[in-house]
Design a protein around this nucleic acid. Structure first.
Lengths: 330, 330
DNA sequence: GTAATAGTGTCTTTCAGACAGTATGAC
DNA sequence: GTCATACTGTCTGAAAGACACTATTAC
C-alpha cells in the first residue's frame, strides 16, 4: 500500500524513432554492442534531471540521435526484462544487480531528405522480414517459418505441460498469427508474432538469452536482424501500435512533408501497414474523409503531374476518430 | 546509455478491478485516507518478491481485495505523479523523497452474486457521472460542466501563453470532448475529459494538488467522487481502454457468468460503454458474429423466458478481431 | 384479458472493395 | 505516336442503423 523505496530498481527509457526514407520506413539505432547488434536510443530515468518520463526520453533522443522529436507516445512497460535480456544464465546473481524496468516509447519524426545523420537509420523490415506483405506473402514465412513452427507445434509433451486449459494450443496460435490454413494475416499482431518466434527459439535473441528450445532443427535460418537486450521486442510493440493507430488517428501526417501527392501518401501508409492498398479506394477515403485538401500546386516528375495536397487540420475537430480505414489489397 | 541505478525511484503497481454488480459496473476500492477518499489496491513493486510486474499486481489484489484475478492488462505508466498527487506544494523537498512511478493495470473479474466482500465495491459512474449516457445526456454536463468550461475557454490570456501553435484551442477541446455544438460525444475519450476537468480546476483533486485555476467560479459543484493520489486518473484510463477494447476483443465475457441471456449481455455492455444499444442490431451482431451460441437452456423470470447462451470460444481462432462493433442508440 | 419481457422480418443508407476506363505529361 | 504516371466513374455486396411486428410467460 505504501511507498517505501524498494531497493535496486532502475527505470530505463527506450525510444523507437520512426522516420521515412523515401518509401521505406526506418528507425534510428546505433550503440552497437560487442556482437554488432544495434540498440535503440535509451538511458536511465533520473527524476532529478527529467521532469517527466517523456522529457527524459526526449533528452536521450536529442543526445544520442541528435533528433528533436515531434510526436511521442508511450508504448508499454516491460518488467520481465530478464527473460528477454540474458539474465537467465544466473538467476540468483541477478538479484544483486538493480532490477531494470524498461518503458518503451514510439516517436514519429520527419527528416528532411539528406539531413539525417547517415548510417544510423535501419530499414524496419530488416528486423521483421515476415511483416512486409507489400509484394505478396513473404517467402520467408512459407520457406523458413511455418515448417519449423509446425514442428514446434507438434511437440505435444510441451503442450500438455501448460496447465491453462483456456489457452490456445500451439497450432492454433501459429495459424492465427501467421495466417496458415486460410486464416487472414492480421497485420497488427506484430508483437505476438515476435514473441511466438522467441518462444519457439527461432529468433537469435532466444538463443542469446539461453533458451534451449532450438532442439528441433539443426540449422537455424536468420529470421531478421537481432537487436540488443529487449529492443526488438520494443520495436515489435511499436510497429503493432502504429499499424493499429493509422486506422483511427491521422498519425501518418507526422511523417509527411507539408505538401505531398496522394501517391506518396499511399506509399508511406503501405510501408507502415505492410500491405498494398487499393488505389481508388484510398484516394476516395482520404478525400471524402476530409483528411487532406488540395494546395493547388503540382509536381513535375516524369509522367502526368500529380496534384499536391496538405493535411486538413480541421478534421481533428470534425470527426471523433479520423484515420485511414485502409481499404486493403490492390 | 547504461544502467547505473538512479537513486530514489520506486515503482508503484495500481490495479483497477472491474466487476459487474447486476447491471452496474463497479470497482474495488478501500484504503480510505484521512479525508475519506477511497484508494485502489496498490503497492510497491519488489523484484525480489514479484517475478514480474503483473504477478506483483496480482499479489496485491489477492492481499488487499481478497480477489483472485482472471484477465489482467497493463494500462499506462505515469511518471509525473507529482502533478496529480500533491507534490506540487513543495517541489524542492520532493526531490529528497523517492520519486514514484505508477503503473496502472486493468483487471476484469467475475464475482458470483453475494460472494463479494461487501462495502468495498463502488459504482463506476459515482466517479465519472458525466460518462453515463445510458439515459440520455447527463444533466451534469449541461448544468454544471459546460457553463464553467465555457468560462475557462474564454480566458484568452491563458490561451495565448501556450506557445504550441499546433495545439487545439481550449474551446475546441471542450467541444471535441464534451460534445458541444453538435460534435458527437466520443465515449472512449474518458481520460482526456478527466484531464481537461483537472486542468480547468473543476475536479477536487486539482484543488487538493494545489492548482489555483478555480478562480472563475465561486461555488464548485461536486463533479464525481474524489480518489486518493492519481487513482482517479488511472481509473479514467481503465474506462477509456475497456470501452475501446469492447469493440475489437471479446473481453466482455470475462465479466459474464458461463450462461447468460442476450438481454443480460446487452445490459452489461451498455453499463461499460455508457450508452444504450439498439436491441435488434445487438442480437444480430453477437449471433451472426459467432460470438455466442445457444446452450438450449432457458431462464424463468417474469415475462417470456429467455434463451441462454454461452461464449463461443472458437471465435478467437476464426476472426482476427472479434468484438462488438456496437450499434449505438435505441 | 393486461403487463412484462423475449424475439423476428425486412427496409434503407452507407461504405468497403472491385471493375474498367480516361487524362496529362516526357520523349 | 509510346511510355509512364495521375486520376475518375460506376457497380456490387455487406453491413450499420432503423422501422414495425409477433411470441411466451405470470398474474
Amino acid at each position: 500500500m505504501s511507498t517505501a523505496p524498494a531497493p535496486g530498481i532502475a527505470i530505463n527509457l527506450t525510444g523507437v524513432i520512426l522516420v521515412m526514407e523515401g518509401d521505406e520506413a526506418a528507425i534510428y539505432a546505433s550503440n552497437f554492442d560487442a556482437g554488432g547488434s544495434p540498440g535503440l536510443p535509451s538511458g536511465p530515468f533520473e527524476p532529478i534531471k527529467h521532469r517527466t518520463l517523456e522529457l527524459g526520453l526526449r533528452s536521450f533522443a536529442q543526445e544520442q540521435a541528435k533528433l528533436s522529436l515531434g510526436y511521442v507516445e508511450q508504448l508499454y512497460t516491460f518488467g520481465d526484462r530478464g527473460r528477454h535480456a540474458g539474465e537467465s544464465a544466473a538467476e540468483g546473481e541477478a538479484m544483486l544487480n538493480p532490477h531494470i524496468v524498461s518503458i518503451g516509447y514510439l516517436a514519429l519524426t520527419r527528416i528532411a531528405p539528406g539531413t539525417a545523420p547517415r548510417g544510423h537509420f535501419h530499414q524496419l523490415y530488416g528486423f521483421f522480414p515476415w511483416e512486409d506483405w507489400r509484394k505478396g506473402p513473404p517467402a520467408i514465412i512459407a520457406r523458413d517459418i511455418l515448417p519449423r513452427l509446425a514442428l514446434w507445434a507438434s511437440d505435444h509433451a510441451a503442450e500438455a505441460a501448460s496447465a491453462d486449459r483456456r489457452a490456445l494450443s500451439r497450432a492454433e496460435r501459429v495459424a492465427l498469427l501467421f495466417g496458415a490454413d486460410g486464416t487472414p494475416f492480421d497485420e497488427e499482431k506484430v508483437l505476438e508474432r515476435y514473441e511466438l518466434l522467441y518462444e519457439a527459439g527461432l529468433v537469435e535473441e532466444a538463443l542469446r538469452d539461453g533458451r534451449k528450445a532450438a532442439t528441433f532443427w539443426p540449422s537455424l535460418p536468420k529470421l531478421g536482424r537481432m537487436m540488443q537486450l529487449d529492443h526488438r521486442r520494443i520495436l515489435a510493440t511499436a510497429l503493432g501500435r502504429i499499424r493499429a493507430k493509422l486506422k483511427y488517428r491521422p498519425v501518418i501526417f507526422e511523417l509527411m512533408p507539408p505538401d505531398f501527392t496522394l501517391t506518396d501518401l499511399q506509399r508511406k501508409v503501405e510501408a507502415i501497414s505492410g500491405h498494398p492498398l487499393h488505389k481508388q479506394n484510398f484516394r476516395r477515403l482520404v478525400e471524402t474523409g476530409g483528411l487532406v485538401e488540395a494546395t493547388g500546386g503540382q509536381t513535375m516528375t516524369r509522367g502526368r503531374p500529380a496534384a499536391l495536397f496538405r493535411f486538413r487540420r480541421d478534421v481533428l475537430t470534425e470527426r471523433p476518430a479520423p484515420g485511414l480505414r485502409l481499404g486493403r489489397s490492390g
